[in-house]
Amino acid sequence: MTDDPHPEDLLGAYAVDACAATEVATVAEHAADCPRCAAEGTRLAEAAQWLGVLTARRPPATLRTRVLEAARAARPAREPEVGQLLDPYARQVAAFDRLLAGLEPDQWRLATAKYDNVGELVTHLTASDALVADDLGVQARSASEPQIRRRWRAQADALLREVASGGPRLLERQVRLAGKAPVRRPLREALVQRTFETWIHADDLRTSLRLPTEPPRPDQLAGIASFALALLPGAIDAAGRGRPGQVRLVLTGPGGTEHLVALSAVPVPATTGGGADPPEGAVAEVVVPLVRFCRLLAGRLSVLESGAEIRGDAGAATDFLEVAATLGCD
């Protein structure tokens, strides 16, 4: 509350833009600190704007084309291929933001997954997103934004805008991925990772709030698994556990697929001339639900908790799963 008298007499005029500029400033300044006047001003303005429907009138049919063309000229629409990668990310950003927007002040202090409080979690996600945003030269509009949530959201929105207007060629641009080891990959993969990390942190928060978790759609989960599996052979080498042979990974449940994954990125010399076919039998088979495998990738489920069934070479399968569990962004 401020010490100023409540400018109640002006609230009606303010709601319909019928005040002088100095009066507008007086009301806005007061309302910034006075929830009661702010609430009344909002309600009166909302009521006033309903008057706008009274005079609804169908515009000439030509106006629709004119508006859409002018819009396209002012800011290019994204191409469908870009939309396929961007929509899942945009959905996770929106879902996480909705969770954050609903937090009470004391809920911001909740310990969440690997973070002491929600603020640290969001700051961490902002830093991960910044790897891609910086590599694309994206400037978040409100770099000076004081609020943790707004700063994250402004950067995510700026990233979405940039990719949306960039076209399919931008998707091939090499950018940094988040994670333990520095890796540069095409933007199209980085967007899958952004979707992945944003979802995992939204679920972290849901868990702290005792809400049910909400996995992305099965086809998006399958995309996350494929993204990680492409990195896995190199990661197994980096962990010093590379070996010849492959693991057959059977991902079950909606969106489930089978993958043959090499246990090393080092090419295995062909034993017989010209025989480029992969070996018939994998050294081990791992069967696990797709959604659990994604949570394992994020380091949110241990190998044991994932309930993975292992057949064949148990050592190879365990190495495979243990390294997979390090591919998250934390």
């Binding site: 706008g52 429907v53 005079t55 609804a56 009138r57 169908r58 515009p59 106006l63 629709r64 508006v67 859409l68 819009a71 396209r72 800011r75 290019p76 629409a77 994204r78 870009v82 939309g83 961007l86 929509d87 945009a90 950003v93 929106a94 929105d157 979405l160 805008r161 949306a164 207007s165």
Partner: peptide
């Protein structure tokens, strides 16, 4: 709003189809 941020033209068409009569009618009035 999120779809518009993501450059989804279908979202703009949807907003137009839903609100153009209100917007145009008000401007005309």
């Amino acid at each position: 709003r999120d779809a518009l941020t993501g450059g989804c033209e279908e979202a703009l068409a949807e907003v137009y189809d839903t609100h153009s009569a209100t917007v145009y009618g008000l401007a005309l009035r």
